[in-house]
């Protein structure tokens, strides 16, 4: 588990998601939260490690932290 000092407003558990994919689930969650809130994405897809940061930059949000794990990754995104 993460030791980070970030309190996410929402957790998106996309582990095992085959379709439409973890990033889609994350974007849906980002729409719902307020600016300043952090959403943490749990994903076991390595593709999320590149997909998510790329979108975060494109959309002008902030990547707060990425915790890579053997079982799954935790990616913290703040809505700007």
């Amino acid at each position: 588990m993460t030791q980070l000092d970030i309190e996410p407003a929402k957790t998106v558990d996309a582990r095992g998601a085959a379709c439409p994919g973890p990033l889609m689930d994350l974007i849906g969650a980002i729409r719902d939260v307020d600016p300043g809130d952090v959403v943490v994405l749990l994903s076991d897809s390595d593709r999320s490690l590149t997909d998510v940061p790329e979108w975060v930059e494109e959309a002008g949000n902030e990547l707060r932290a990425v915790e890579e794990g053997d079982d799954h990754h935790e990616i913290y995104v703040e809505k700007v």
Binding site: A18, C19, P20, G21, L23, M24, I27, R47, D51, E54, W55, E58
Partner: peptide, 12 residues
């Protein structure tokens, strides 16, 4: 499409 490809599933 919302993400960086035309479908959520990379294979599709």
């Amino acid at each position: 499409y919302p993400i960086n490809r035309v479908h959520g599933n990379p294979h599709i």
